[in-house]
Amino acid sequence: MTNDIWIIATAALVAASCALVGVFLILRRQALIGDAISHSVLLGIVLAYLITDSRALPIMLGGAVIIGLLTAWLSDSLHRVGKLQSDASIGIIFTLFFAIGVILISLYAGQIDLDQECVLYGEIAFVPFDTIYIGNLAAESGFDIGPRAFWGIGIVFTIVLSSIIISFNRLKTIAFHPSLALSLGINVIFWHYFLMTLVSMTTVASFDAVGAILVVALLVIPASSAYLVARSLKAMLWMAVGYSQLAVLIGYALAFWLDSSISASIAVSAGLLLFVTIAWQQVQSQRRQRQPIDSL
């Protein structure tokens, strides 16, 4: 039972962080760069681990942020200097980084406690078994404070949420109209890389739980559903979190019922909620179109 609570709590934080960051990616039309960073941070984790021989959260986050920012910067440079289309440039850089990460994992398989399957798909069901123990394990004087993944995403969620609360107006102006923001003296490039930092941290903290592929679903889908219905940025952020939490609950029930992967079920639920939203909107607009005829 406690395991279920840890799993749901971790999934809820992963989904909420992704939804909040995803809102800004969707509004800035940068969903693809979210996809790219979620893959290339693998290289960051592997390199950070190989260099420091540690799996501590700050080191993992640091490695991921450096590689995440490098992905964004190199994609942009390839687009400008190489005169390649921007989506092609992003596709080139992140697959390259991801592939190098995969090679490194297989080269140092003995040393790295990461298997490729887990990186790609994640396994949230195993989250409760990797816990943080404070104090002396042998003397049994310390105590277990819960899963590593939960605390990792918990810290990242706090960073994401406080960043958005503090710099809400800046992020809003930049997402709405970058040149206007620039004309007001806002450093658009800084905020771009700031957002990329948040994306990197969120994806790396979500890795254990949902893996590199499904984190994209959580970045893009709840924010997209919210985009369809929200009328203000604040509402869009709330709705994206709402959609993501609903997806977690429905997905967990679905996984329990089908006895299948929890993270995949969450992603499927998020997709279903999006389609339900679109269908509902279609029905609404048709009803509205029919109204003048009825009133005749």
Partner: peptide, 25 residues
Amino acid sequence: EIDWDFPINVLDVVLMGRHGQLKLW
């Protein structure tokens, strides 16, 4: 050049004219 589907209302757009004068927080 403006994204008119952006979720924002009229008063909030006008308030953006004041953002240059405001500190980050």
